[in-house]
Write a protein that binds this DNA or RNA. Structure first.
Lengths: 206, 206
DNA sequence: GACTCTCCATACAGTTGTGTACGGAAGGCC
DNA sequence: GGCCTTCCGTACACAACTGTATGGAGAGTC
């Protein structure tokens, strides 16, 4: 890119990358203009030329993450015709990776105004992908919803658990057993959910 | 408790409760002495009499949460002899509740020095409870480990997902299908793990 | 009624962060 | 070779937060 006096000039993307790196090694609060400037060897004067304020940087970083981690990956997955194979590829690409630190950082910041809409979009898009897998397997709508929810909850939980318990990644044999369990007829035979009116989670026992 | 000039005096527990409430509605950074003092109608002078510093409050709050949310609940669960019923009770108590906001806040702060040891202890204790259920069901060690991991990852993921996707709680019918799926022979029939060499079988369960 | 202990308010110092104002250097344009 | 645009450093005002020092009011004690 452009340079001046031998020194490379910073781009908007440089700040975004630095923000995502800070997010990965910390939390949303770690995206601090002060600290980013220090790591980039610049001052806040540079930052406020590229961005209106800190919120603009956070927003741009989240949108970048949304594209890289979700939007851009879906077409390649959908191109796989066999649903079981699609699930297997998904698991292999996604469960075997070490936990995505950005994702973990965002998961708990889901109530912050800047994070919430992005995270909701990503969640919905990913759930849709998995749901289509089970629909292609012949499951009913409600069953596919349940199963997709299960798979994705598992995905999120695994990454969190991996960090807390020090488990690095799923073993291939575990993956195979997992796919087998999830694609088994199993609970699929349940009646198409004439949901009982119950589900009054009001009482909080301990 | 004690009072002075009609005004109730604050206790150590008052500050801990306020800290946990702040944690539940925000993140770890939300535990700020300044703000807590404001919500309690006191000043930091009071706080620094009860606690050495902010870290002491955070530590005390985390230990309180550990007892209330895990340590104190295990004996009652273990008292249930039938493993399937134990799993069902666990799910009913735990999955039907709205997401524990403290837990979600802590999950992503798992790398912070103050949070990490507590969260690791809680994770291990809960995994042990579930693992015992599957051992009592007759599963081999490795299978019980896998299944426990699956159940607990599901638990964590469900709560996160519920917040992101706006799902409130599992319906009873979904719960039943879930228990059925998880206790089904399913992947249990997999050969007793002649793990491919790539697999370090221990997977660091401690 | 002086004395002490408990609990808290006030005041101050220091740190870290945001955002703005302004100036200035480097390089392209003519 | 003046001029303008791009990019960034410096300086300042301000807010939120931590931690410390100190004093003092209330209540119990003798």
């Amino acid at each position: 890119m452009a340079s001046r006096a031998g020194k490379r000039l910073l781009t908007r993307q440089d700040w975004i990358d630095a923000a995502l790196h800070a997010l990965a090694t910390g939390d949303v609060h770690a995206i601090a203009v002060d600290r980013l400037a220090k790591t980039l060897g610049a001052t806040r004067g540079s930052f406020y030329w590229h961005f209106a304020d800190r919120d603009a940087l956070v927003t741009a970083a989240l949108e970048h993450w949304e594209r890289e981690s979700t939007t851009a990956l879906i077409p390649a997955l959908d191109a796989i015709a066999q649903p079981v194979e699609r699930l297997r590829v998904l698991f292999r690409e996604v469960y075997e990776q070490p936990a995505d630190a950005v994702e973990i950082a965002l998961a708990s910041a889901g109530d912050q105004p800047l994070v919430e809409p992005v995270f909701a979009r990503v969640t919905k898009a990913r759930l849709d992908v998995v749901r289509r897998i089970f629909l292609d397997l012949g499951l009913q709508d409600a069953d596919a919803d349940d199963r997709a929810w299960l798979v994705y909850a598992l995905y999120i939980g695994h990454h969190q658990l991996a960090r807390a318990a020090g488990i690095k990644a799923l073993q291939p044999a575990q993956l195979d057993r997992l796919v087998e369990l999830l694609t088994s007829p199993g609970a699929r035979s349940a009646p198409p959910a004439a949901e009982p009116d119950a589900a009054a989670p009001g009482e909080g026992s301990t």
